[in-house]
C-alpha cells in the first residue's frame, strides 16, 4: 500500500455482520455490498495513480468534497473489479461537474437517475454491454459501474432516500444504469468523437434523466416519416430552457439496430439526423392551455400565459444538443428518447 487512507474502518467477524452493519449505517441501496477492505482500496488507488485525498469533485450546496478514496470504496462495494475504477472515476467527475448539477439531480422529487454512456476502447476491454440487453442486467461491468456512481451519490454526496433524496416514486434506473455505444455495428461517428474526443480515447458521458419512451416502428418506409414520428412522440413531453444550463441543455436518443440500418442505408449520418431533428423538436407549438393558466417565463423575468407562438416544446439551442447514440440488440425495432433532468450531458475522458 503506497497511499495513506483517510476513511475510518470497522472490523467484522462475518460477512453477515458486515451486511447488517452496512444496512444499518445507510450505506446500501438495499442490495448486498462487497466489503471495501483497506488493502483493496489501496490497490485501486495505486492502479489509478491517485492519492486517497485527491478531490474528485464537490457538492457546494452540501459542503462536501468527494475524494478518490470515496470513489474507490463505493466502487468496490458496488462489486466493481479494480480495472473498472477509471471509468467510475470519469463518470463521477462528470456528475460533480457544475453542469452535472449534483444537488438538483439527486435531491429531486422526480427520482432522476444518472446514466453512464461509455465510448471508446474501455467498452471492449471491460466487457461493457452495448448491443443486446445494454439497458439491463447480465454484464458485471454495466451493473457495477452504474451502481458505483449511485453509491457515490448516496454515501459520498449524502443523498440518503427520505433525507436529502426526496424522490416521490424514485426509479429502478437508480440501482444502476450504464451501457456503451455500439460503435462497431454502425458507420456513425461515436458520441465522444462528436463531442471532441479522439476515437481511441475512452470517455463517459454522464446524463441525468427523468424517464424514457420508446418508439416501436417496424420497417419504416422512409427516414423522414420515421423521424417525424419520433419528433411527434418526443414533443408530448416538454423540455424547458434553464438559464443555469444555458446552451448545454440536451436530449439523448438511443437508436436501435433496425432503425440505424434503415437510416444508414439512406445515407443519413448523425449530423444529418441532428440537422433534421433539431428544428422540428425545437419548433414553437400551438398548444393552447386552459384559460387563466400561467407559469414562470423562460427568461425568469415574470409570468406569461402558457401556449402561443413563443413557447417551444424542446427549448434546445443547437443541433449538437440532440445526442444520438447507437445501442441495443436486433429484433425489437426500437428507438428510445431519454428525457433530461436539469443538467447537461457531461463527457469526461477515462
Amino acid at each position: 500500500m503506497t497511499t495513506s487512507l483517510k476513511q475510518p474502518s470497522r472490523t467484522f467477524n462475518t460477512y453477515d455482520a458486515f451486511l447488517d452493519d452496512a444496512q444499518k449505517s445507510g450505506w446500501s441501496d438495499g442490495l448486498p455490498l462487497v466489503p471495501a477492505t483497506p488493502w483493496r482500496v489501496a490497490e485501486c488507488l495505486d492502479l489509478m495513480g491517485l492519492e486517497a485525498r485527491e478531490v474528485v469533485g464537490a457538492v457546494p450546496s452540501r459542503d462536501l468534497e468527494v475524494t478518490a478514496e470515496h470513489v474507490a470504496i463505493n466502487a468496490l462495494m458496488a462489486g466493481c473489479r479494480p480495472e473498472y475504477l477509471p471509468v467510475v472515476l470519469s463518470a463521477v467527475r462528470g456528475h460533480l461537474d457544475p453542469l452535472g448539477n449534483s444537488h438538483c439531480t439527486t435531491a429531486t422529487l422526480t427520482g432522476a437517475s444518472q446514466l453512464v454512456v461509455v465510448n471508446g476502447p474501455a467498452r471492449t476491454e471491460l466487457g461493457i454491454q452495448c448491443g443486446e440487453r445494454a439497458f439491463g442486467p447480465g454484464s458485471r461491468a454495466n451493473a457495477t459501474i452504474g451502481r458505483a456512481v449511485r453509491l457515490v451519490i448516496r454515501n459520498a454526496c449524502q443523498n440518503i432516500p427520505g433525507d436529502a433524496d426526496r424522490a416521490a416514486f424514485s426509479s429502478a434506473n437508480r440501482y444502476s444504469f450504464c451501457f456503451g455505444e455500439d460503435e462497431e455495428s454502425t458507420t456513425w461517428t461515436p458520441l465522444h468523437v462528436q463531442r471532441g474526443f479522439a476515437p481511441h480515447t475512452s470517455t463517459t458521458t454522464l446524463y441525468s434523466m427523468t424517464d424514457m419512451f420508446a418508439l416501436h416502428r417496424a420497417a419504416p418506409s422512409a427516414p423522414e416519416s420515421f423521424l417525424d414520428e419520433l419528433v411527434h412522440l418526443a414533443r408530448c413531453r416538454p423540455i424547458t430552457r434553464d438559464a443555469f444550463l444555458g446552451d448545454t441543455r440536451a436530449v439523448l436518443i438511443v437508436v436501435g439496430p433496425e432503425h440505424r440500418e434503415m437510416l444508414e442505408a439512406a445515407g443519413w449520418s448523425k449530423a444529418d439526423l441532428q440537422a433534421y431533428l433539431f428544428p422540428r423538436l425545437a419548433a414553437p407549438h400551438t398548444r393552447v392551455s386552459a384559460p387563466g393558466a400561467r407559469g414562470e417565463s423562460a427568461d425568469g423575468q415574470g409570468l406569461h400565459a402558457l401556449g402561443g407562438p413563443e413557447e417551444s416544446c424542446f427549448e434546445l439551442t443547437k443541433p449538437e444538443n440532440v445526442l444520438i447514440v447507437a445501442a441495443g440488440g436486433a429484433g425489437s425495432n426500437l428507438t428510445w428518447i431519454l428525457y433530461p433532468h436539469i443538467a447537461a450531458a457531461v463527457t469526461y475522458p477515462v
Binding site: 467484522f12 460477512y15 452496512a22 471495501a36 478514496e69 470515496h70
Partner: peptide, 20 residues
C-alpha cells in the same frame, strides 16, 4: 449463515463526514 463466515476483516466507511 455459516456458509458466509469468513476471517476477521476490516471494511472502510464509504461516506463523507460533516466538516466543511
Amino acid at each position: 449463515r455459516s456458509a458466509f463466515s469468513i476471517d476477521v476483516f476490516q471494511a472502510l466507511d464509504p461516506s463523507t463526514r460533516r466538516s466543511a
